[in-house]
Design a protein around this nucleic acid. Structure first.
Length: 493
RNA sequence: GGCGCCGUACCCAAGUGGUAAGGGAGCAGUCUGCAAAACUGCGAUGCGGCGGUUCGAACCCGCCCGGCGCCUCCA
């Protein structure tokens, strides 16, 4: 039974979908005017994991994630570069997909764009005007917060408090300083669409109301986004949606915490952000490995807590993953043990699964879920030391795959991860590593295999001096050689 | 000024009333030709501080200290 922290109520609540087994979930995506940074990655990842876990729990998820492709910053960026807004948005949507793919973030079931819903937005705005919740001034349309009594429900703010703190210059044409634009009159060189109020474009908040309404209906299960969206964006969405339909809007509001650098929020204005592509470009690991390391790092902190980004943290994530993939490689090695001899494997797996589910059910406690996987790692290592049949080994690997899939971890083959590889002095060393060469290693696999074989031969004739010399050579190139009990060796980068 | 978050061992990080998970690093041991990996053992009498409630508090309440976020675009 999944429990989720609901920002609306400020408490952890039992999650039950409105219309099981379907779950309707809307998450605010990105404004496509620049590359994504780690903060965007975290948000995308958190809600993807929620989606994966809901699916793991047997639900069918309708997952809607939007692109904001009309916005002041997009216009500014286009002007700056002397290109059209479409050129900007197309470019960064494509970049978004590239980044997400490298992180292993699956696409949502629907990914609507604001510009494809102008008609819906206009109709919704008209409804709000007709209901007396919005008014027109010189081709602009504003939402009237004073006419929506529940304003502030999500962010727990009172209009009076907001008024006192408002530091922005007040637009004299607005009836209340907190009134916000549903529709903005366009200047001549800005993108615009015909509307009952003249040519213009939608305000920021209205698109999410219109798109969620269209794709998920008036009331749906989960609405997510970064904590910084609670106010004003989500507050305004609620006002618009509930104002227009008179119905409940999203039932659960889920917000992720920030990625920080040196304990400060990672943001454009502070200039302390790392784009996802920068991290991949600078990574010493192969691309799929870097993606998994980032996932592990981001999921090893609870989604609502802040997480501090650093090279060191990434390295720690890599080390932790190494211990899993090292095990997976050993699980692949052949066993002479009888097929029925599993020890207490079934019990061990069952207990790990119970802990894993309990953790995930508890407001998506991924750090605890990861701890359960570490527990299983230790148990399987012990069983392996006491010998485990080939069948048992496969079963164990499959358990890691199944639970790991919820977090998007453990799906690679050990050789892809750069974990221990069977050396040429052993069986089936046929793995191909082309295209995965990490920046640090200059030797080809063939050369490494040759040296490992040479070392094996030296060991056989007890020429340990020579053997150690070869190992040192390889070690200097970042290649670790491990000797197995049967006298053969495995290696890893 | 208003709203809110965080502070747990050297580092990361769970735990939100019943007596401190897990990972990394470190140290010691087993194994090994030597290693590595794995396994075993060691490590906070204490959870920012001070009070209070309670049979019992890291968890609840109050005050204080330190760090941060939102209130303006922001994942």
């Amino acid at each position: 039974m999944l429990h989720l922290f609901n920002t609306l109520t400020g408490t952890r609540e039992l999650f039950e979908p409105l219309d099981p087994p379907t779950v309707g979930m809307y998450v605010c995506g990105v404004t496509v005017y620049d590359y994504c940074h780690v903060g965007h990655a975290r948000s995308a990842l958190v809600f993807e994991v929620l989606r994966r876990y809901l699916e793991y729990s047997g639900y069918t998820v309708r997952f809607v994630k939007n692109f904001t492709d009309v916005d002041d910053k997009i216009i500014a960026r286009a002007r700056e570069q002397g290109v059209s807004c479409e050129a900007i948005t197309n470019r960064f949507i494509e970049a978004y997909y590239e980044d997400m793919e490298r992180l292993g973030v699956r696409r949502a079931t629907e990914e609507p764009k604001a510009t494809e819903h102008i008609g819906d937005i206009i109709r919704l705005t008209e409804t709000l005007i007709n209901k007396g919740l919005a008014y027109v001034v010189d081709g602009d349309v504003y939402f009237s917060v004073a006419h929506y009594p529940a304003y502030g429900r999500l962010s727990k703010r009172r209009l009076e408090d907001l008024q006192a703190g408002a530091r922005v210059e007040v637009d004299e044409r607005k009836r209340h300083p907190m009134d916000f634009a549903l529709w903005k009159r366009s200047r001549t060189d800005e993108p615009s669409w015909a509307s009952p109020w003249g040519p213009g474009r939608p305000g920021w908040h209205i698109e999410c109301s219109a798109m969620s309404l269209k794709h998920l209906g008036e009331t749906f299960d989960i609405h997510g986004g970064g904590m910084d969206l609670i106010f004003p964006h989500h507050e305004n969405e609620i006002a618009q949606s509930c104002g227009a339909t008179g119905k409940e809007f999203a039932r659960f509001w889920v917000h992720n915490g920030f990625v920080q650098v040196n304990h400060e929020k990672m943001s454009k204005s502070l200039g302390n952000f790392f784009t996802i592509r920068e991290i991949f470009a600078q990574s010493e690991w192969p691309e799929p490995v870097t993606g998994e390391v980032l996932r592990y790092f981001l999921l090893s902190t609870h989604y609502r807590a802040p997480v501090d980004f650093s090279d060191r943290a990434l390295k720690e994530a890599k080390n932790a993953l190494n211990s899993f993939y090292d095990l997976f490689e050993r699980l692949k090695e052949p066993s002479t043990i009888a097929a029925h001899d599993h020890g207490d494997l079934n019990g061990v797996i069952e207990r790990a699964q119970t802990s894993f589910v309990r953790a995930m059910d508890d407001d998506l406690n991924t750090p605890m879920a990861i701890a359960a996987l570490h527990g299983l790692r230790g148990e399987v290592n012990k069983l392996l030391a006491n010998a485990l049949s080939s069948q048992g080994r496969m079963q164990a690997r499959q358990a890691f795959r199944t639970m790991g899939k919820v977090l998007g971890l453990f799906q690679l083959e050990a050789w892809q991860f750069g974990a221990s590889c069977a050396g040429s002095s052993v069986h089936d060393a046929g793995h191909q590593h082309e295209g995965l060469a990490p920046g640090s290693a200059r030797l080809s696999d063939d050369e490494i295999e040759r040296l490992v074989k040479e070392r094996g031969e030296a060991r056989q004739r007890k020429d340990f001096k020579k053997a150690d010399e070869i190992r040192r050579t390889l070690s200097a190139l970042g290649i670790i050689v491990e000797d197995k009990p049967d006298g053969t060796s495995r290696w890893k980068r």
